[in-house]
Amino acid sequence: MSTGSMSERIGDRFGESLPSPTRGVRKLLSLVGFVAVWWLCYRFGVLNFDHFVSPVTTLVEFAGALAGQPLTEGGDTIYLHAVYSAARVAIGVGFAAVLAIPTGLVVGTSQRWENLLYPALEAFRPIPPIAWLPIAIIVFPTLALGSISVPLPALFVVFVGAFFPIFTNTIEGARNIETEYRRAAESLGASSGNVFRHVVLPATLPSIITGLSLGVGLGWITVVAAELLTGGPGLGYIIMQGSRLLQNQIVVIGMLAVGALGYASSLLVERLGHWLMPWSTTEGNRE
């Protein structure tokens, strides 16, 4: 908390010699500057930016896409692609959470289960999730449920990407519970089941949420990679498709859409955290 005030204070010291517009204006300036730099690069051909696309075209087309125009001639709308990608992330991360949280709690609280499960899972952890894509394609066929195809390989890769952050953070959280909380509960008459429910679970929750938020982030990275490689519909696919059709504005629209959704989903996890942990202060009780 004191941190904000510190940067503020030092900022003020800097500010004395400069004319200091309000924070909001400065932030707006930052975004305007960003677009201006992009435009200058495009206009004067920095690197190969002149072959890319101007911010103006992009923003106009983005507005059109948001109004529901198909992204490519005769193709789907941005909303449909977004729904596909988001659903893959949600399902993959959901499965990962359902498996990783209980496993992490067990491994984090029992030495025996740690010995039995941790070495095997730890052997998988350093393998980047996208490296699983070929294996996933070999093992899982793509199912078709009516008109909707279920891309199991992509889902599996998202699952792998989200599993380990959730798993390791859950373990970390469960291991680092202050012993005296357990002892306090035991001395008040709690059975081991009650210690788990009333102490271990709530005390691990902040770490689980941290893991979930990292997992969702990796979920978006992996889903885009999988869609770039295996096709769509999906935002990764339209980014690739846009570059194939030499419609660079579609590439940028896809990138911005992925970024916005990634940002929104991390906010969602944060909200979930606040909802599940009404006792936490705004910044969270990181210790």
């Binding site: 202050e178 005296e180 909380y181 002892r183 306090a184 509960a185 035991e186 001395s187 008040l188 008459g189 709690a190 009333h198 102490v199 709530p202 005390a203 929750l205 942990m277 006792w279 009780n285």
Partner: peptide
Amino acid sequence: PDPSRGVVFQENRLFPWKTVTENVRFG
């Protein structure tokens, strides 16, 4: 440990995730 032997710790060990009432009712 047994509830007939109550313990107060050096650092406050109220459960941070429970309200005061929930803490007092816990035993």
